[in-house]
Amino acid sequence: MNSHQNKIQSLLTAMESRDLVEVLRQNSLPFLAPLFDDQDDSPGIRVYTLGRFSLVKNEQAVDFPGRAKRKPMDLLKALIALGGRDVCQVKVAEILWPDADGDAAHRSLDTTLHRLRKLLDNDRAIMLREGKISLSNDCCWVDAWAFERVQGRLEFILDQLFNENIDNQEVVKLANIALSMYKGPFLGVSSSESWAITYRERLRSKYIRLLRKVGRYYEANGKLDLALEAYLKGLEIDGLLEELYQRAMACYCGLELRAEALLCYQRCVMNLRAHLGIPPSPRTEQLHQQLLNS
C-alpha cells in the first residue's frame, strides 16, 4: 500500500471512529479548517462576522478607518458572503463597483485584491485562479464558517438521536459552542449591503433551526432549564416565532414557574397582535387554558 492509499485507509478508519478531524489535521489536508473556536489551533488571520465585523491578524485587531482600507474590507466581506471558495471574479466586481463598466470594475478589483493581500500580510490567504477567487482555510479562520461546521455536525447528531432520551456529552459540548458562536446577524445589525442578505438570512435560519432542535433534545432529556434557555435565545432573534413561545410556556410549566409561563403567553399575544395583527393559534390558546386550569 502506498502512502496515498495509507492516508485514504486511515481516513476511512477515522470516519468510523469519529477521529476524522484529528487525522485530517495530521495529514495537513488543505480543505481542513478548525472545527472549534480554538485560539491555539487556528490560522493567524481570524475574521469575526457574527454580530460585527472584525479582523484579527496574529492576535492583533486590524483597524480600517480610512477609505484606502475600506474597499479591501468590503472585498473580504463579499468573499465570505458569497461562500469564500471559487467566487466568480466578475460577480465580485459587479457587487463592489456596480456603476463601473466591466474593464474599470475588473481593474478596481485587481487593485483592491492586491491591497487586501498586503493588509492580510499573506499572499496565500486569497487565491485567484481561472477567474475564481478563494479564501484559504489554511490561512483564514472565519467565525461564520466555523459556526456552520459545528451546527452541521450538531444537527447530524441530533437527527440521529431524534426521539431518543440519550444524554450525549458531545451534544452538550457542541450546543454550547454553537450557541456561543452566533453573536448576532452576519456583519452586524447596522450592515445593509444587499449582497450580504442571503447569507445573513441563511445563518439566521440555521441558528433558529438549531435552537429548536437543541431545545427539543434538552426537553427530551428532562433538562428543562437548558431547553428554556434555547427557546428564549430564539425569541431574542425573532419575537414572532409562535412555536418557541409554546415550547417556552411548556418548559416554564414543567419548572413550576406558572407566573413566567403566563407572562410568556402575554408577550406572545402582544407581539402577534402588534406585528402580524393575528391572535395566537389554537395550540397556544390550549396551552394557556391548561395553565389557567393548573
Partner: peptide, 12 residues
C-alpha cells in the same frame, strides 16, 4: 425573488 433555505424568503 430568492428563496433561502428555511421558510424565510429573501427578495432582491
Amino acid at each position: 425573488l430568492t428563496i433561502s433555505p428555511s421558510h424565510y424568503r429573501h427578495l432582491n
